[in-house]
Design a protein around this nucleic acid. Structure first.
Lengths: 205, 205
DNA sequence: TTTTTATTGTTAATTAATTCACAAATAAAA
DNA sequence: TTTTATTTGTGAATTAATTAACAATAAAAA
C-alpha cells in the first residue's frame, strides 16, 4: 500500500497474482510481460505500467521474478491485519470465494454468512451460517469489516441499514437497489439487471 | 438501438428507466435532470448527455416527460424480439432478477436455470430448474442467447465450452476463472475475488 | 569483437468517461 | 412590459484508462 494506485490497477494486480500462483514458477521462475498478458488477454504495456506503479522491476532479459512479484503484490494490496468478510444472502457463488480466501495465505477471511430463512444448521467450508437476525451482533463480535450483499431487493434497504450501523468499512452490493451509505464506507455496486440489459443491447449489435 | 451508445450510457439508461418506473409519474409526470441525478447520486450533466445521445429532448422548464422517456429508453436499448436468458449455478440472487424480467413488460425472459446437483424437482417464479446435463439441449431448444454463469471455478472451463458450443451470444461470467470466448460472443466478467481485494485495499486507505 | 535481437521502463499519444460552464429559451415575478 | 430565475442542450475542459512507441540495455549470434 505504498502509492495510491488507480482502482483498475489494484484489481489487475489481484488478477496477476492469482494467475501467477497457478503458474509453474518452480520450474519457470521468470515471466515476460507479454506472456502474462497473453494469459490474461490484455495488453503487455498494461502489465509493465501496473508493475511500475508498484515500483517493481524486472530483468530486461529474464523478465519478472515470479516469486518476488507475488510477494510484492501482497505487500502492495494486502491489508496488514486479517480483515474479515461476511456474505449476506450469497448462494453457491460464496462457497468458492470462501474456499479461496480461507486458505492460510490470504489476509481476507470469510468469517460468516447470513441467510434470510429460518435458522439454518449448516455451515460450509468451515464458515458458520447464521440467521439474518443475528447479523448485527455477529458483525460486531467478529469485527467483520467487509460485506457482500446479495439479498432480494425488497429486503435490501432494511438490511443495509443494519449493516451500516454495525460499523463496516466496505460493501459489495449485488442487489438491484441503489444503497446510500455514509462517505466513510466504500461501496461498489453491481446491478445485474442493468448488466443483462447492456448484454442484450450489445449482442443485438 | 439507433446510435451506437457507449457501454456506460446503456447501463445508466437501464438504471434511469428502473428508477422512473418506481417514480409516481401519474401525479408528477415531469422530472428535471437534477432530480433524477439526486435519486441516483450522479451528476445531472451526465443524465442530460445520456438522453441527448438517445436523441431525447426535454422541456426547458418542465423537464423530461417521464412516460415518454421510459418509452424512448425501451425503443433505444430493448431488443426487438424476446431474448431468452439462462442462469447456470446462480443462487438466491437469480430469483429476484428472474422476477423482474419475467413480468409482461420486459423483452428479456429468464427461460431456465441449471444446477450442478442431481436433478432438482424445483422451479421458482415459473422458471424451470434443470440438471446441468440437460443444458446444451435446452439452450438450443429454447433458443437461449444470454447466460449468467456462477458455478464453482473447477467446473467453469468445462461448462463454458458447452455453453459456447450451444451458440449463445453473450455471457456474464461470475466465476473467478477467465474465460476465452470467440469474438462473436460478448462477455463481461465480474471477478469477486479481485473485487474483494480491491475493496480491502481501498478500505485500508 | 561487433551486430542483431528482444525486453524492460517510461513518456507520449490516444481513447473513453465524466464534469464544467454557458448560451438559448421561457416561465414566473416584478 | 421588463426583469429575474431556471433548466435544457451541448461544446469545451478535465480526468481516467488504455495503448503505442521507443531509448536504454544486455544477452546471444555472427
Amino acid at each position: 500500500m505504498l502509492a495510491n494506485l488507480p482502482p483498475n490497477t489494484v484489481e489487475r494486480l489481484s488478477l496477476y497474482r492469482r494467475r501467477l500462483l497457478n503458474f509453474p514458477f518452480e520450474e519457470k521462475p521468470f515471466i515476460h510481460s507479454h506472456q502474462l498478458a497473453h494469459l490474461l488477454k490484455i495488453n503487455p504495456a498494461h502489465i509493465r505500467r501496473d508493475l511500475m506503479l508498484m515500483g517493481f522491476s524486472g530483468d530486461v532479459h529474464k523478465g519478472y521474478d515470479i516469486k518476488k512479484l507475488i510477494k510484492k503484490i501482497g505487500q502492495t494490496i494486502d491489508c496488514k491485519q486479517i480483515q474479515k468478510v461476511a456474505f449476506v444472502g450469497v448462494g453457491d457463488l460464496g462457497r468458492a470465494v470462501a474456499a479461496y480466501f480461507n486458505n492460510a495465505d490470504s489476509r481476507l477471511k470469510i468469517a460468516a454468512t447470513f441467510r434470510l430463512t429460518e435458522e439454518p444448521k449448516t455451515q460450509y467450508a468451515d464458515v458458520h451460517c447464521y440467521n439474518i437476525s443475528k447479523m448485527k451482533s455477529i458483525i460486531r463480535k467478529e469485527g467483520i469489516e467487509l460485506i457482500v450483499l446479495a439479498v432480494p431487493p425488497s429486503f435490501a434497504k432494511e438490511i443495509s441499514k443494519t449493516i451500516i450501523s454495525s460499523g463496516v468499512k466496505g460493501i459489495l452490493n449485488f442487489t438491484s437497489v441503489h444503497l446510500e451509505v455514509p462517505k466513510h464506507i466504500y461501496i461498489e455496486e453491481y446491478d445485474m439487471i442493468s448488466k443483462l440489459e447492456k448484454l442484450s443491447y450489445f449482442t443485438n449489435k
